[in-house]
Design a binder for these strands. Structure first.
Lengths: 225, 225
DNA sequence: CTTCTCAAAATTGAATACAATCGATTGTTT
DNA sequence: AAACAATCGATTGTATTCAATTTTGAGAAG
C-alpha cells in the first residue's frame, strides 16, 4: 500500500540542481557539463537531461545547440521583463486568492507581519523571510492547477535577491497589510490591483538602474575605438 | 556560411506532434505510446521524450508516472483558468506592443479587419483567420524574449476552437478596432485594459456553460444511487 | 457464472555505448 | 612573427539495450 517513493530520478535531480543554482554553487553564465554533474550526483545523463530541460522551461538554464547547457544569466532588460510577468501572474493569483480565502487563512497572513508593525527598526532578514512566505502563500491559494506549473514566478524572488534588489521594508509592509485587508474583504479586483502596484515597485527600481547604466555607458565609452 | 540546418531532432518531433494534436489525429485523453510514435516518425525515443517534455510544459500532454503520456484533456474548469491566464499575459503583450508599435505596424493590423467593416454578413471562417493573425501579431510585437517562451498562450485559440467556443464576430470586431486605435495612440494602459476586456468575453462564455452543466448535473442525477 | 489470483507481455524509466560537432592547440606557410 | 588551416580532444546529441513496473488475460476456485 505504499504509494510513496515513486517520484522519478529526473525530479530529484531537478530539485538538486535548482538548489545548487539557488545557492550559487552553479554561477550564472557557468557551463553545466553533463558528464561531470551526472557523476557528481551519481546518476546517468538521461534523468539529468530531463531535469535540465525542466530547468530550461523555467529559464534557469539555457541550451545552446552543439555548445552545451549554461546557467542562465539575466541582464537588466530581461529581469525587467520577468518582473512585468510577475506583476500580471501574481496579480491574477491575488485576485483568485481573494475570492477563495477564508478568515483562518487571512489571519495566518496577518500573523506573518504583526511582529513588524510599529517597529521603528525592522530586522531585514526576518522581514524578507516573512515577505517570501506571504507571496508563496498567495500563490499557493490563488493558483489553480494550470498557474501552479508556472514555476518561473517562484524563481523571481531568488533571482531578484541575487541581483541585490532592495525596496525598503517600510514601503512594502504597508502594501502587504493593505493587500491582506482587500483579500479579507473578498475584493478580488482591488487585491489584483494592489498586488500589481506592490510588485511594480521592484520593476521601477530596476528601470531606474537600467537608465543609470545606460547613462554611464555613454559617459565612459569603452577604451579602444 | 550556412548556419541553418542546425535545429535538433527534438524540435522537429515537437513540431510534428503539435501538428498531430492540432489536427486531432491524436485525440484528447489518448495515450501516446512512445515506441509506436518513435517508429512512426522514424526517430528513437530519446528526442521523442524531449519533444514530449516540451509539450508537457505547454500543457498539451500529460505525464503520469509509470503509466505513460497522454494527450491533455481539458475540462471546463481548467479551460476557464487558462483563459484567465491568457487575459493577463496577452494583456501584458498588448501593453508592451502599444509602446513599441509604429504606424506601419498599426496599419498592418487595421488592414486585417477592413474587409469586414460595414459587412452585414460576416464570413466566419475568414474572420477567424484574421482574428488569429491579429492576436499572433500582437504577441509577436509585445513579447520579449521571456514572454515568447510561454507558448501556452499560442495554443489557447486552438484548444478553444476544439471545444466549439464562439463569441459572435460582430462583438469582437468592435473590440479589435478599438484596441488597434489604442495601440496606435500609444496608450499602453488602455490597450492592456481593452485586451483584457476583449478576452474576458470568452471566459465569461465558458463560465456560463459551466453553470449550465452544473445545473444539469443536479437536475438529472446519475441513474443508480 | 463470476471473481480472484498469478503469470506473461507490453510499456515506461534508466544506463550505456556510439556518432557527430565544436573548440583548442599545434604546425605550416606567407 | 603572425595568421590560417588541419587535426586532436572533449562534449553534446542520438540510439540501443536493460531493468522494473503495470496491465491485461487466462485459469482456477467459490
Amino acid at each position: 500500500m505504499k504509494r510513496i517513493e515513486q517520484q522519478d530520478l529526473g525530479q530529484l535531480v531537478y530539485d538538486m540542481l535548482k538548489a545548487l543554482i539557488y545557492k550559487k554553487e552553479l554561477k550564472p553564465g557557468e557551463q553545466i557539463r553533463q558528464e561531470e554533474v551526472s557523476k557528481r550526483l551519481g546518476v546517468s545523463r538521461t534523468p539529468l537531461l530531463k531535469a535540465l530541460q525542466m530547468l530550461e522551461h523555467e529559464s534557469l538554464v539555457e541550451f545552446i545547440p552543439r555548445r552545451g547547457v549554461f546557467v542562465k544569466k539575466y541582464d537588466l532588460q530581461e529581469l525587467i521583463e520577468i518582473f512585468e510577468l510577475r506583476e500580471v501572474l501574481e496579480g491574477l493569483a491575488a485576485k483568485r486568492a481573494a475570492a477563495r480565502m477564508d478568515s483562518r487563512q487571512t489571519n495566518q497572513l496577518r500573523a506573518l507581519f504583526t511582529p513588524f508593525i510599529d517597529q521603528t527598526e525592522i530586522d531585514c532578514t526576518a522581514y524578507e523571510k516573512a515577505d517570501q512566505s506571504f507571496h508563496r502563500k498567495v500563490l499557493e491559494i490563488g493558483s489553480g492547477s494550470v498557474l501552479k506549473r508556472y514555476r518561473v514566478v517562484q524563481n523571481i524572488p531568488i533571482i531578484a535577491y541575487q541581483m541585490g534588489l532592495h525596496v525598503p521594508p517600510e514601503v512594502t509592509l504597508a502594501d502587504h497589510l493593505e493587500l491582506i485587508e482587500a483579500m479579507s474583504d473578498q475584493d478580488a479586483d482591488k487585491a489584483e490591483q494592489l498586488m500589481r502596484k506592490h510588485l511594480s515597485r521592484g520593476r521601477i527600481e530596476l528601470s531606474k538602474r537600467l537608465e543609470q547604466e545606460e547613462a554611464e555607458a555613454l559617459e565612459e565609452p569603452v577604451s579602444a575605438t
